[in-house]
Design a protein around this nucleic acid. Structure first.
Length: 106
DNA sequence: GCCATGGCTAGTA
DNA sequence: GCCATGGCTAGTA
């Protein structure tokens, strides 16, 4: 699989995340066939987040937290998720048991 | 060298 | 908190 294919697969997977659900960088990388290329997923998010109709904000880290730092869009991502009904606890964490998207396919 | 990650260890109470 | 990881890319001149 080359970079184009990986990118297309990652984009397709992100588009498939339903509203009110989230997934992690590592999960997307794994589902796209490159379990260790989480940084590649990060780059695609960065490059494409404002273009297309990508629900980039539905991707969080494995701890269930928003990885953006304050000032880099953290508040915006949180607001977008909350608008879909995703709840954060006092430490700004999402309960993944409840919100993690688990695709049936595979 | 740069990272919007992830997994694991050491050392303490 | 530390380190392995993977790709070289952040839209300009």
């Amino acid at each position: 699989m080359n970079r184009i294919e990986f990118t297309e697969e990652v984009i397709a997977l992100i588009r498939a995340i339903p509203p009110g659900k989230v997934t992690t960088y590592g999960q997307i990388a794994a589902m796209a066939g490159h379990p260790r290329n989480t940084r590649g997923v990060v780059w695609i998010l960065h490059a494409c987040s404002e273009s297309d109709d990508l629900p980039w904000f539905r991707v969080v880290n494995q701890a269930g937290r928003i990885s953006l730092s304050p000032g880099q869009g953290h508040a915006r991502q949180k607001a977008l998720l909350e608008a879909e009904g995703v709840q954060f606890d006092r430490q700004g964490r999402i309960e993944l048991r409840r919100y993690l998207w688990s695709p049936v396919a595979l």
